[in-house]
């Protein structure tokens, strides 16, 4: 189910709001820059964040040009005016959680070196707007630790070889591995069955060991 790995460590610069010179006014536009220091360009699987009054989001991606044998980088629009608040004057979506999958992007977010989130809030109703708790998840790469452990491989190899491990195991007083695994599977199936058939109908009791004597309500 969960294809993405745990979030990447990245540097998220604080939101910069568009302004003219020193004067502060409600421009309705802000930028968050995300850098991935000490890392090769990454393939993004998912970006998750909590909205804080941003109405629409565009994402620019800095993509390494290694594919076309060119050096340097290019900026590409990955997402354009993705709506976070359907009506900027109203609260809907203003503090919601969002998950952007790679399929939501208009260009596949592969080989990315940096991201720029361009935030827009046309409504003057809100004092500030930004995004919080931004997490970037990279696509899962083949992880050597997740492959079959060494000892299992060795067992497989053994059974294929001429060493007749079954005989060896019997000699050592151990049961047949195939039999054990069959039995284990049976047990697993039974366990699953009991979990499935357990009625989720509550009995409706509210007392504890027959007692429901209460003095005061608890504040915690």
């Amino acid at each position: 189910m969960n294809d993405a790995e745990s979030p990447l460590s990245c540097t998220i610069r604080p939101t910069k709001y568009l302004s003219i010179g020193e004067s502060m006014f409600h421009s309705g536009c802000g930028v968050i820059e995300i850098l991935f220091p000490n890392m090769r360009p990454i393939d993004i699987e998912k970006i998750s964040f909590v909205n804080n009054y941003t109405a629409a989001l565009s994402i620019k991606m800095k993509i390494a040009k290694s594919a076309s044998n060119q050096t340097g980088h290019t900026w590409v629009t990955g997402l354009k005016n993705y709506q976070l608040m359907p009506k900027p004057h109203c609260e809907t979506g203003s503090q919601s959680y969002f998950h952007l999958m790679s399929s939501d992007f208009c260009k596949q977010p592969n080989e990315v070196c940096a991201l720029r989130f361009i935030l827009r809030q046309p409504s003057p109703n809100w004092k500030t707007f930004t995004l919080e708790e931004i997490y970037v998840h990279a696509k899962k790469t083949k992880d050597p630790t997740n492959e079959n452990p060494k000892w299992l491989e060795s067992v497989e190899n053994l059974s294929a070889s001429e060493m007749k491990p079954r005989d060896q195991a019997e000699l050592k007083g151990l049961p047949d591995t195939e039999q054990v695994s069959e039995k284990m599977q049976e047990i697993l199936q039974l366990a699953e069955k009991t979990v499935l058939s357990a009625p989720n109908v509550e009995l409706g009791r509210f007392d504890i060991d027959g007692s429901y004597e209460i003095n005061l309500l608890s504040y915690t």
């Binding site: 504890i208 007692s211 429901y212 209460i214 003095n215 005061l216 608890s218 915690t220």
Partner: peptide, 15 residues
């Protein structure tokens, strides 16, 4: 939420 009398703070007696 509350607790059964005399069992204040014990999660297994929270009701």
């Amino acid at each position: 939420k509350s607790y059964i009398r005399g069992k204040l703070g014990l999660e297994e007696f929270a009701v």
